[in-house]
Structures are given as structure tokens and as C-alpha cells.
């Protein structure tokens, strides 16, 4: 993710020293804060989760009906900012404004649901119980979402490069190991995988034959002949034509949803040079993973 600014961790404190909130107020405050991107923990008399050691530098804001006696809160980790706010008598709107005002001091760029420019968390999640490290996904994705770790195991490395609402790589995975939890239907959304799903996906996996002798075939071609063909195609016109051809093929294949393709501009697709670079890297990785 691009930014590392986190919204406050909110604690709705209803334990010792505070009066319980009326149900309706508790519900409204919790729901509104969640819908704005905050995490909210409700603490009642029984104590709840051990919050004595909150992580990182994420500030904590404790809200409660303290009736004028806000407790002093200290943290073992002195660098963590913990604030207490007495919300006695305040309505939901005022409470939210108060939280938002505090947050304003944390700087711009928070990813808040519903706000303009918010990033919808859309990215592939790999089920390693199923993945066989075949690297089809890595070779398929044109946007460098995938990479490998030190052990040469496939991983998702650049999740914010992923095209929102595009589940294409999950459809080329022969093991049905790639999920998009926010996808509408199974097994891509994480539903259990049926044997029929595996059979269907395996049929689709030959990307080379699916897309014919163009961009994806070139990804897999390691011969000098292919390199020389690419070097001849370096003129801007040829490169653009190549991309257009690829887009048309992808459109026809139905693998990438039409609305996602419509948003892709040709310039955002990698150039043949980049594809060639990726093909070389991929061949190297696969050789290393096989060895």
C-alpha cells in the first residue's frame, strides 16, 4: 500500500470508571466509525482483549462517558500516543467530528472508505495449501503484482498495482489457488474449491494457445530468435500495434472483464521491451525454482 498513515485505534470504554453507553448511541458510534475506516474495540466490565501493549506507532483514542473524570492512561511503550476523551452528553455527530478533528493532525492520505480516491483493497491472495509454485500467475500478470521471495516461492509483492475488479490471474491458476476475497462468486472469493472447479481451470491454463503467438507467447519464449524478433519491433508504431493486438485478444478471450479492459489505456500496458525483460527474469526464476 502506498501510505503508512493509520487512523486512530478507537476504544469505546465501558468498563470500571465509565458509564455504559445507551445501546442506540453505541451502535451508531461504532457503525459510523467503522464505515469511515477506524477499528473500534468495545471494552466492558469483563475487560476484553488485552490492550496493554498496542502495536507500532498507531495512536489510540479512548472514548467513554467518564462524567468529568477521564482516567489517566499511560503506556509501557512511551512512544505510543494515547488520548482519552470524555464523551458524556455528546451526540454521535459531535463524537465523530471530535475524532475526525484529531485525525486531521495525522496528515493527509488516509485510505477511508467512501471517500474520493480511496483505494478499494483488491488484490490476489494466495492459498498456499493449494499453490504448487508453477508461476503461471507471475508470467501472466503484466503489472508486476507477483514476485518471488528468497526461497523462490511465489508471493504477491505489489498489491496496489493490481487492476481493481480484475480477477484474471485467478482464472489462469491451474490449482485454483488465487483468491480475490471481494469477488462476487466462488471459488475466487474464497469459497471451498470443488473438483469440477479444478478441472475447468486446468483446461484454460494454456495461455500460449489461448492468446496465440503474441505477447504471452513471447513471455515464455527464451530463444534468441524471439529476442531478435523483439528487437525488430522496437519502433513506437510497432509497439503500439502489438499492444492493441494483445488487448483485442484479451477481450475476445473473456479472461479479463470488459469493464476492466475499457479502463486500461494502451500506455499503461508494458512495452515489448519490458515484456522481454520480464520474460528473461521469469525464465531465470523458473529455472532456479526447478533446480
Amino acid at each position: 500500500m502506498k501510505n503508512d498513515t493509520y487512523p486512530y485505534q478507537i476504544i469505546l470504554f465501558e468498563g470500571n470508571g465509565a458509564t455504559s453507553l445507551a445501546t442506540e448511541r453505541r451502535r451508531e458510534v461504532t457503525r459510523t466509525l467503522l464505515d469511515k475506516g477506524y477499528s473500534v474495540t468495545r471494552v466492558t466490565e469483563d475487560g476484553g482483549r488485552n490492550l496493554s501493549n498496542p502495536s507500532g506507532d498507531i495512536p489510540v483514542l479512548i472514548l467513554g462517558d467518564f462524567e468529568g473524570n477521564s482516567p489517566e492512561v499511560t503506556s509501557r511503550e512511551t512512544r505510543i500516543e494515547i488520548d482519552t476523551e470524555d464523551i458524556t452528553g455528546l451526540d454521535t455527530e459531535t463524537i465523530i467530528t471530535l475524532v475526525e478533528q484529531k485525525r486531521a493532525g495525522d496528515g493527509e492520505g488516509l485510505n477511508s472508505p467512501g471517500e474520493q480516491g480511496a483505494w478499494k483493497p483488491w488484490f490476489p491472495v494466495i492459498d498456499y495449501d493449494r499453490c504448487t509454485n508453477c508461476m503461471q500467475c507471475l508470467s501472466f500478470c503484466l503489472f508486476d503484482v507477483y514476485g518471488v521471495d528468497e526461497e523462490k516461492q511465489i508471493q504477491v509483492q505489489n498489491n496496489d498495482n493490481c487492476k481493481t475488479n480484475c480477477p484474471a490471474c485467478s482464472r489462469v491458476c491451474p490449482e485454483v489457488a488465487i483468491m480475490f476475497p471481494k469477488y462476487s462468486s466462488g471459488p475466487i472469493n474464497g469459497a471451498e474449491v470443488a473438483e469440477t472447479d479444478v478441472a475447468r481451470e486446468k483446461m484454460k491454463v494454456d495461455i500460449t494457445s489461448l492468446l496465440g503467438g503474441d505477447i504471452y507467447a513471447s513471455l515464455r519464449t527464451r530463444s534468441e530468435k524471439a529476442k531478435s524478433r523483439f528487437s525488430k519491433e522496437r519502433s513506437p508504431d510497432k509497439a503500439l500495434n502489438e499492444r492493441k493486438r494483445c488487448l483485442t485478444k484479451l477481450q475476445q478471450s473473456g479472461i479479463i472483464p470488459a469493464e476492466v479492459l475499457a479502463e486500461l489505456d494502451l500506455e499503461s500496458l508494458p512495452s515489448p521491451d519490458e515484456i522481454q525483460r520480464k520474460a528473461t527474469e521469469f525464465a531465470k526464476m523458473q529455472a532456479e525454482a526447478d533446480s
Binding site: Y38, G48, R49, P113, W119, P121
Partner: peptide, 13 residues
């Protein structure tokens, strides 16, 4: 007592 998060996917990402 309970914990709520706005979006686990976003937190994971």
C-alpha cells in the same frame, strides 16, 4: 467486549 475492524482486506494489504 468485542473487536471490530473496518476492512480486514485493507489491513492485510
Amino acid at each position: 467486549s468485542f473487536d471490530t475492524v473496518s476492512d480486514l482486506c485493507e489491513m492485510s494489504a
